[in-house]
Nucleic acid binder design. Sequence first.
DNA 1: ATGGGCATGTAAGCGGTTACATGATTAT
DNA 2: ATAATCATGTAACCGCTTACATGCCCAT
Lengths: 185, 185
Amino acid sequence: MSLRHVLLGLLSENPGHGYGLRKRIVHRLGHFRNINEGQLYTQLAKMEKEGLIEREVVVPEKGPARKQLHITPKGKQAFLDWLRSDQYEDDGVLYDFMQGYTFFSKVNFFQHLEPEEARDKVRSQISQMKDKKKAYEEILLQMERRNADPFRIRILTFGLKELENRIEWLADLEGDLVRQQKEAV
Amino acid sequence: MSLRHVLLGLLSENPGHGYGLRKRIVHRLGHFRNINEGQLYTQLAKMEKEGLIEREVVVPEKGPARKQLHITPKGKQAFLDWLRSDQYEDDGVLYDFMQGYTFFSKVNFFQHLEPEEARDKVRSQISQMKDKKKAYEEILLQMERRNADPFRIRILTFGLKELENRIEWLADLEGDLVRQQKEAV
DNA sequence: ATGGGCATGTAAGCGGTTACATGATTAT
DNA sequence: ATAATCATGTAACCGCTTACATGCCCAT
């Protein structure tokens, strides 16, 4: 999706300053480890130079100067053009689902691991995914309570289903690995 | 996962030359649009300099010279270290599932689109996903026929389930958008 | 003979990460 | 006091993409 389009989208909805946008991205796209400042401010500077956004320096009586960013009509148009285009709707990767769950990249090579080693990895994943599921359920509840955007609720609902599938799949895999282990004995 | 680890993994299984590795990556990771040559050969050169792989120039009577690549013990160890480590098992993104299906990045902003526009996008996605599903089913059948690595079969099975979920989810979304449209009339 | 597949590379550029630097405010 | 959070930036680096260059072999 590229940072640029997220920024354009968020600023289409509400103006804001850099640091605030960072938090909104974390909230919307779910990066736990802070989004990096480097790319943020450099991208914002670039977008300003291209006339997609404008900044207005706000100096409050208290607190550091904030640079309030507003989207320009040109920026709004660029955002809408991206949204309407086919761009990013097919990334040219047949097994795109693997990118969503990087653990697959290792499972792909599990034949190189002893069954117990693989099994431990799978077990650790199961507990991680269960934690994630709880986090999703809480977020979903909050979103429903505050009548959040239905499209975003839908997306989270998909995410929850996906996690359930992952857990189920991992459990099956664990079962297989345990069976393999017993056979070896 | 990074190209380096895929390369190390593939060369752990069988030696090969650059062009052949490219095809194996396409086969294994499913990049339709050719994997780019740039990164491939530069990465390979880097890995050789680091002593992870060795090359042996093979000049056949016919055809261009091939540079057969072999993994070194050091390379094999680096691969196993990666496989056993926790690296890449958690990418710090809460909504990681969104990365697997880039269409979500747009749905996130569907409130900015007219219901018919959104509906058309969803319909186009449904047909794309159905095509993908057929492709997966065929690949799975082939894998089972030639007794492919069970771990990889499992991964594909997950992918198929994922596609079914996407299609179901998209159909629900379409239904909502059609309803929204009728209400507007 | 022409285009497609095999085969190996180089160069420029871009988007993103890591790490560092600075300084103010707020909470404990 | 001091740690955390708010806030804005710069510099070096890295992985990957895009695009180009070269040349051989094979099928139509």
